Amino acid sequence: MRRKRRSAPVTATIFPAPVPPTVPVSGEAAAFPVRRIFCVGRNYAAHAAEMGVEVDREAPFYFTKSAFSLAGAGTLPYPPGTGDYHHEVELVVALGRPAFRIDPDEAMGCVWGYAVGLDMTRRDLQAVAKSKQRPWDLGKDVENSAVIGALTPAAAFQPGEQRITLHVNGEPRQDAPLSDMVWSIPELIADLSRYYHLQPGDLIYTGTPAGVGAVQPGDRLEARVEGLEPLDVAIGPAA
């Protein structure tokens, strides 16, 4: 009777495995490794209104981006397949502890730090998806579209009334206090933890205030949250 041959243990990959993305930490040599990116939709009432919809106050809703869509400060290429690429400045929350089915009053203990970010969006493709009741992936999960500045540890920053702003070529586009968020940070973490085993390395982009708009190659963006490291990017030629 012929014996079955055992498969050899996997010791290598058929092509080089991608290096996990990381985010720099303010004042530190070590970087923050990123696992997943969750984004909150319509978390500022004025932004929902400018998009022609109302905030769903029964529960927050989410979409995701690949961790490999992360980008930092510098020049970012204008992406393919769009003629209407929009900026959305956001506060980003970085998790440093696991969370599953936790209460809001426990949620802040899971936060490792904060950063200012940009949820860049192919608005024309998102609009087509909405009109056909399709997922937003082509509009949202775009290469280099999850832009993020250096993280500030939670011990050095307490979200409250700080202003979140965006300037394009020196002109103000977005400006609101963080307190305008419909769903607070602990509420978002607790709600997400009902559906996911949240882990260290997960990022939450917490939504954008009103004033979103299109950018063009050559534009310079200055994203700010008071008390956090600034984020400056330029839009380069189409890739």
Rank of each mutant, 00 (worst) to 15 (best):
P153H: 11
A154E: 09
A154P: 12
A155W: 13
A156M: 07
F157E: 01
P159E: 15
P159L: 15
G160E: 03
E161R: 02
E161S: 09
R163E: 12
R163P: 06
I164T: 04
I164K: 03
I164P: 09
I164Q: 09
H167A: 14
V168L: 15
N169L: 10
N169M: 11
E171F: 10
E171R: 15
P172N: 14
Q174N: 05
D175P: 00
P177C: 07
L178D: 07
L178H: 07
L178T: 10
D180H: 15
M181N: 01
M181V: 11
W183V: 07
S184W: 11
S184F: 02
P186V: 12
P186I: 08
I189W: 08
D191W: 05
L192K: 03
L192C: 08
S193T: 12
S193Q: 05
S193F: 03
Y195C: 12
Y195L: 13
Y196P: 02
H197C: 10
H197M: 12
L198Y: 01
P200H: 08
G201F: 10
G201I: 10
D202K: 13
Y205E: 04
T206A: 11
G207Y: 02
G207N: 02
T208K: 01
T208M: 03
A210L: 07
A210Q: 13
V212S: 07
V212H: 01
G213N: 00
A214Q: 09
V215I: 15
V215Y: 08
P217Q: 03
P217L: 08
P217F: 10
G218E: 05
D219N: 12
L221W: 01
E222W: 06
A223H: 06
R224Q: 09
V225A: 04
V225S: 09
G227T: 02
G227R: 02
L228I: 01
L228R: 02
L228Q: 02
E229A: 11
E229W: 05
E229N: 09
E229H: 09
E229G: 01
L231F: 10
L231Y: 05
L231N: 06
